[in-house]
């Protein structure tokens, strides 16, 4: 089986700061990969490189067997078929919830408006926001905003979902409602890469866990192995502090 995401010798620097060092990673269909590690380890940068929200200097990334740096068409295809959820939601504040979810379906996937609305309703109902179609983002709580953002990404019918610290900007009591949506997605077989500090959640849904520190992928193993028998000393140290 071909991997959905294939990363080889990925290297990236911000000026003198070396943020990603020779990263190698495969994500297969159905994988739920959690990337964890201390702040500044390069987790967010790594996930943002996958759809070229962040450029990189050397190595290569293939998504759906297409090189992200190959051509404009490749990148467009990759972006249309992968969903991204951000820490700060990045909803469109001038549009209603419904318009947020339909915009890209209509203007990126060229879907008919009525079809897009039907699909949006389905996605919003699934994340428990059937009463918020006409609300504007600033009328929603953080947890609701993030669920809209997830619905917006899912409405594009992606083959993979990327989550960049989806709960880090949320109040503690809103974290669960977002994680529950992600757990359901994982159970439905969605391929996911998730950057998060929620280790309890990672243990529950991830089949693979990657641990990054100072730009290096120090550990990449199955969830069970990661928690019970970590290889690197740095991972052991990290786990002992957070568990």
């Amino acid at each position: 089986m071909d991997p959905i995401v294939k990363i080889r010798d990925l290297d990236k620097s911000f000026g003198k700061l070396h943020v990603l060092k020779k990263i190698n990673l495969d994500v297969f269909p159905g994988d739920v990969l959690v990337l964890c590690g201390p702040s500044g380890a390069g987790k967010s940068t790594l996930i943002r490189c996958i759809t070229m929200l962040e450029n990189f200097q050397s190595g290569f990334i293939e998504v759906f067997n297409k090189n992200v740096k190959g051509s404009k068409e490749n990148l467009k295809y990759i972006r249309k078929n992968s969903g991204m959820v951000f820490q700060h939601f990045n909803l469109f504040p001038h549009l209603t919830v419904m318009q947020n979810v339909t915009l890209a379906q209509i203007h990126s996937k060229n879907m008919a408006k009525q079809e897009a609305i039907e699909n949006a309703k389905m996605q919003l109902d699934q994340v428990g926001l059937s009463s918020k179609y006409d609300a504007y983002p600033d009328q929603l709580s953080g947890g609701q905003k993030q669920r809209v953002a997830i619905a917006r990404a899912l409405a594009m019918n992606p083959k993979i979902m990327l989550f960049d610290e989806p709960t880090s900007a949320l109040d503690p009591e809103m974290i669960k409602e977002v994680l529950d949506v992600m757990i359901r997605l994982a159970k439905e077989g969605m391929t996911m890469i998730i950057v998060t500090h929620e280790m309890g959640f990672a243990r529950e849904v991830a089949n693979k866990i990657g641990f990054l520190d100072k730009g290096e992928l120090l550990e990449l193993s199955s969830s069970q192995e990661f928690f019970t028998n970590p290889k690197s000393a740095r991972t052991k140290d990290f786990l002992s502090k957070i568990l």
Binding site: T51, K76, M84, F92, L103, H107, S108, K109, A153, M156
Partner: peptide
Amino acid sequence: GQYEASKALGLSWNK
């Protein structure tokens, strides 16, 4: 973040 979300959704620059 508005630009990033648009990119991630595959919207063209014009759109």
